[in-house]
């Protein structure tokens, strides 16, 4: 049973990671990335590493999306301003 769980979560991580690569827009990638964090947390828990899963959840569920979205917004704003100056 535990082997099946490990296999399922490995497959979920692989599928989500592939999706994160295939999706091209950074804002949409941030969404897939947060789901990838969830899948990784499940994988770590199934492999009996709850401490790693805990830090993965703490960082991956709110902080990483926030960082990515803020950077995307800043880059876009700068791009728009340079376009306006030209």
């Amino acid at each position: 049973m535990t082997d099946a769980l490990v296999l399922i979560s490995l497959f979920a991580v692989a599928a989500t990671a592939t999706a994160a690569v295939v999706v091209r827009d950074p804002a949409r990638q941030a969404l897939v990335l947060s789901v990838l964090g969830l899948a990784l947390a499940v994988l770590f828990t199934v492999l009996q590493a709850p401490d790693v899963a805990l830090s993965q959840l703490a960082v991956g569920s709110a902080l990483t999306p926030l960082l990515i979205l803020l950077s995307v917004r800043k880059v876009r704003r700068r791009g728009r301003r340079e376009e306006g100056e030209r």
Partner: peptide
């Protein structure tokens, strides 16, 4: 505890 952390931080995300 994992579920607790996720229940708090997931909606925040």
């Amino acid at each position: 505890d994992l579920a607790l952390v996720l229940a708090v931080l997931g909606p925040v995300g």
